[in-house]
Design a protein around this nucleic acid. Structure first.
Lengths: 337, 337
DNA sequence: ACTGGCACTCTCGGGCTTCGACTGCTTACC
DNA sequence: GGTAAGCAGTCGAAGCCCGAGAGTGCCAGT
């Protein structure tokens, strides 16, 4: 629908606007290396591009800036992610050669890596607990009526939930419950563990033990969806791309709500996209932002996702490749562990 | 050193400047309720106040704005924290009546509470692990060579560290080590546990067990200082008080480094202050910011600290009382648990 | 189908003026 | 001596004008 020349011109406008943040005039486009026609011709094409919704003019006699549709075309025609610069890929290599163990630490560091690669805000969403199996369960009595349920998952993640009892429970009872619980749910996923019918098990148990067991199972079924681990880094880098404090404040408000951020990424991935531009993000407050996402795969399963949040005029090629490379390496590194 | 009238005038200037963010002229001060002299007299006193370093002029023929020394006087003469508004204290009451269990969740919610009370950024530093005793230790083998050490502390906090072994270890060995480790360090503090001489214990143990034990103890001594829990909330609220993106970016850069934030609070508390104004914070990037801090006390011991970060022209009285009240209630609530 | 040319538009920045909010000083009063 | 009143002076902010510059759209010519 866009002939070759128009596409080239659009590409040139987007590229230069990303670089300078200034409206781009026909003269600049004409003098760019890829375009070999005069500025008058460019003008005609730009007028057409504007009519078709790819470009917009802040006012007459200003240059053009890309619309969301313009960015979308630009991103689509980029094809896949490009290659990283030598410095960047070096940085990634050394990062992943050094890192190991401690998943939480690693994800947090990954978000720092990604933001330092792109100079935008980086979001790393940890593996879903749903797919992980329970490696170990422990009940720890903190005070007579307060018991902590500590789960270690196969991913190395830890979940804890406290349960409050109506009556005091002594250590013997807690331990008995712990043993029973352990045989019941070790090896299962969180989902299957929490779906255990708590009434099918009170036969043969002491009442006190049964109470604790039931409470523990209930709490597992709770909102563990909530404590997905999210790591956000580089917000201070990103906001330097904006010039209105107002905008910045709104963006930060979004980032503070980690739940929102997670569902934002998942939503974008769910639509089969790797880039969401402006309103495509589905969030009005992010009208001036774009998101680049990629899932990462651990042991053949999609485990979590990573993403970058920057201005709509972001360096898409760099962001795409950084996200792709980091997602890939992260998945591989986690698979080994 | 400041006579009564000058103090009143200074107070009036600071109050109005905090409200309006505009330089305050002698006319405004003279028309304020507390001042009963003419603007000419005010002018004379303001000139004196400027000479003494309490006020500054952006340029001739502009009003005065407070210097750090001016704010300092203002804060000092406030005396202790005032009282909270009815809405605010209601908010605090309902918050603490609802909250319970899960320390981590609670601290995180507290930071949200504090920022919503003050509209500035709130920092909550969790209890030092140093004072907590170890309630339970567990070793979980994630893979043949990777073992996770999971500690539950009396505070309800959880520490985990992974250790990598040079050789495969089967579950029996890991379990043996777990039992031994548990008898060794349960009931101790982290500090005393990590100071156990790892060479005094390899008598009578199998070599494999000893290896794991030693690795576990070493890892305890590590940098657990680092994972102090820090919860920061309300940054988006706070930045609305500033008008240069540049400043905002620098402040966020500080807040991203949680270690820095913690030592910032501790440093201020260490100097016996509850308010640090501008450069008093000891951080050049926070020249336009002030910090209000208070420690909170759990079971008679200073456990952690909470604080608020806002612009130098912050509402000190509100911030002081919010911080004081929340610190108090938080300590009491944690003591019960 | 391009291109060169031209008239037109609109922003941006400098220079100018006016306005207003201040101050400092001087003088008068109690 | 402390307070008030008045007055001249200062300086930024806002408004205005104008010219420069960067763009555009359109038309006519190749």
């Amino acid at each position: 629908m866009l002939d070759e020349r128009k596409a080239t011109i659009l590409r040139a406008v987007v590229t230069e606007y990303i670089e300078t943040a200034q409206p781009v005039g026909s003269g600049h486009v004409a003098s760019s290396a890829e375009v070999n026609v005069s500025s008058a011709t460019v003008r005609n094409d730009m007028a057409a591009l504007e009519a078709e919704g790819y470009l917009a003019q802040p006012h007459t006699s200003a240059g053009r800036i890309p619309t969301e549709k313009g960015y979308r075309f630009f991103v689509d025609q980029l094809g896949g992610p490009g290659k990283l610069g030598v410095n960047e890929s070096q940085q990634v290599r050394t990062f992943f050669s050094r890192t190991h163990g401690e998943m939480e630490q690693m994800l947090s560091d990954t978000s720092r890596l990604l933001s330092s690669l792109t100079h935008y805000a980086a979001v790393v969403v940890g593996p879903q607990h749903e797919v992980a199996t329970i490696k170990s369960v422990q009940l720890v009595g903190l005070s007579p009526r307060l018991v902590l349920v500590v789960l270690v998952l196969s991913s190395g993640a830890i979940e804890k939930h406290s349960i409050e009892l109506a009556a005091d429970a002594d250590d013997l009872i807690v331990n008995a419950a712990a043993v029973r619980l352990s045989t019941l749910i070790t090896g299962q996923t969180l989902a299957s563990a929490s779906s255990i019918d708590s009434h099918s098990l009170d036969l043969g148990e002491s009442v006190d033990v049964a109470v604790i067991l039931r409470a523990a199972l209930t709490v597992l079924g709770g909102e563990h969806r909530h404590d997905d681990q999210v790591f956000i880094g580089g917000t201070s880098d990103m906001i330097a791309s904006f010039d209105a404090v107002r905008t910045v404040s709104e963006i930060l408000r979004i980032l503070e709500q980690q739940l929102v951020v997670v569902s934002l990424l998942e939503d974008v991935l769910g639509r089969g996209l790797s880039v969401a531009i402006g309103r495509e993000t589905g969030n009005e407050a992010l009208a001036d932002c774009s998101i680049v996402v990629a899932p990462y795969v651990v042991d053949g399963e999609t485990a979590g996702s990573i993403g970058v949040l920057g201005p709509t005029r972001m360096h898409y090629d760099q962001a795409l490749s950084a996200v792709a490379v980091v997602a890939n390496r992260l998945g591989r590194t986690l698979s080994e562990g």
